[in-house]
Simulated scan of single mutants.
Amino acid sequence: MKFLKSACMALVMLLTFAACSKSTDKPATVSIEGIWTGKYGTGNNKPSSFYSFNIKANGVIEELDANGAVKGKGTWKLDNNKILMANYNYLPPANTEYSVIGAFNPQEGRILGNWGYGESVTDGGSWEMTKK
């Protein structure tokens, strides 16, 4: 009986100690691929208009409208796992070309950037997105 009591006390102490130990898990990170939603602004205006991308693993990027329909398509790359660069065109009949650059933060699941017309990434405005 004395052995059983000692064994139970040891087990309780072990469980208590284990429950109080610090976690060494790394924070979860978000992949760049997937659906991203947020807002864009024109010029120096704060982002306030709907903006969304479907960033695909094969280097294809699509701009999506608020209903999820594709309205533009192009290519993207990630430089040093931190900077998203993309160039895309609206689908016909518009065919307008846009370029974007953004700082990708995988720990926060967020991208902050600038957009522009044609190959410029600075003459349009700013944008921000989080992963859906």
Rank of each mutant, 00 (worst) to 15 (best):
A18R: 10
A69Y: 11
V121L: 06
M9D: 06
I111W: 07
E63V: 03
E63D: 11
I83W: 04
S126K: 10
A18E: 08
T122M: 10
A86Q: 01
G68K: 11
K26V: 07
T29G: 04
K39F: 12
T16P: 00
G68P: 04
A19R: 10
K71E: 01
N54L: 12
R110Y: 10
S31M: 14
T122R: 09
I61L: 14
T24E: 15
T29Y: 02
N81R: 13
V30W: 09
T130H: 07
L91G: 03
T37A: 09
A10R: 10
G116S: 07
K39D: 14
F53G: 03
N105Y: 07
T16S: 11
V60R: 10
K131P: 11
G116M: 03
N54S: 15
V100G: 00
S31L: 11
W36V: 00
A86P: 04
N44G: 14
G41A: 07
D123Q: 14
G124R: 01
G116E: 06
Y117I: 10
V121H: 06
K46F: 15
I55S: 00
K5D: 04
N81L: 14
W127P: 00
D65P: 09
L15P: 07
N67E: 15
L84I: 04
G118K: 12
S21H: 05
S23K: 12
G38L: 01
N67D: 15
